[in-house]
Write a protein that binds this DNA or RNA. Structure first.
Lengths: 194, 194
DNA sequence: GTCTATACCGTGATAGAC
DNA sequence: GTCTATCACGGTATAGAC
């Protein structure tokens, strides 16, 4: 129906599955069924199509962090965010882009990726601060650093899982992170001091 | 001098910088100065050269874990391993391969990557066990999971840093991980119980 | 907006002489 | 082992009709 939307949808999928460099205009045409003429009418270059697809893929990631804004204890929300089911062996549609040389070298393509991670970081920092305020986490922990740690656990978990072609390492990584977070609750001793 | 070695060296560099798909035989020839004939004499296909280069790149990573076998407290060795200086914005020459579709789909190319991470995991598990035995870490933590967590922090740290074109998120991620590890030492209360 | 035809270039080789 | 020449193919468009 709407060729333009079809093209963006298809490019989004392909960029998730194969990245940018390794996805050709021909791949997009064949999967979408949109003809050559239409394609270049809507998007003068492959890069233009990729930009549209990328904006879409990063937008998918923002509501994906909705566990963080929900109700419940801050720590419970953080754990829910980490434990949300994910398509582990496909990897992260946003993080993947950082390993594509043609994306890395193109500030315009990298920009949406950068924004998405910055947004995720800000959300996580907020909940971590709440957790500290609620005495669920020690107050000597740095929320900015810790947010990057947790994001890295997820992004790196994908890498390890794909290397083994097994989601196990991803699940291990996040379970270990949660154990550490729980171990970092203010100790009974400290609570008695206050 | 030795064309074969020159080719492997050059391919190793290029695969670190640009991955496999995006590195062409021409790139290798031009950077190495080795001629077309020599190249295809030593390596019948690009994939053969990549296999040799990959074996070499993963071998670079094993001695890189030598901090783990050194002297000193187990926890100090883990921290030294995490804090070792790294070329953050270039990323990990092994982890990078997992995002290349042509590597992902080729079991022979993925195998060295898988082995390298499995080895790193085994080494980390060993030191984490020592840390628990030395009462530097709580004994209710799972060393297998935790090892994957720490590896993921590094691998994911690269992703975040490249996205921002700034090593900051990588440094945050590992600093946060170390803070969590320290917070997971057996509490005074627990120590008194034993 | 969509179609078909055409074009140019880089990739990933192969061929055969030296 | 190394050199130069050649090649088939896919990637990434452009041209112009409908």
């Amino acid at each position: 129906m709407d060729s333009r939307k079809l093209l963006v949808d298809t490019m989004s999928e392909l960029m998730w599955e194969r990245g940018y460099s390794d996805t050709s205009p021909r791949d997009v045409r064949e999967r979408s069924g949109v003809g050559q003429g239409s394609m270049y009418h809507h998007f003068p270059t492959k890069r233009d199509l990729a930009l549209a697809a990328l904006e879409r893929n990063v937008d998918d990631l923002v509501p994906a962090g909705s566990e963080l804004d929900g109700p419940g204890d801050p720590m419970a929300r953080i754990e829910a965010y980490l434990m949300r089911p994910r398509d582990v062996l496909k990897g992260c549609k946003v993080g993947r882009m950082t390993q594509d040389p043609q994306v890395r070298e193109d500030p315009a393509l990298l920009a949406p990726v950068s924004r998405a991670f910055a947004q995720a970081h800000a959300n996580l920092v907020g909940v971590l601060r709440e957790a500290i305020a609620a005495r669920e986490l020690r107050d000597d922990l740095n929320p900015e650093q810790l947010a990057h740690t947790l994001m890295a656990v997820l992004q790196g978990g994908y890498v390890l899982a794909i290397a083994q072609q097994d989601p196990g390492p991803f699940d291990d990584a996040r379970a270990g992170a949660i154990d550490l977070l729980r171990a970092a609750s203010p100790s009974v001793l400290n609570q008695e001091r206050n």
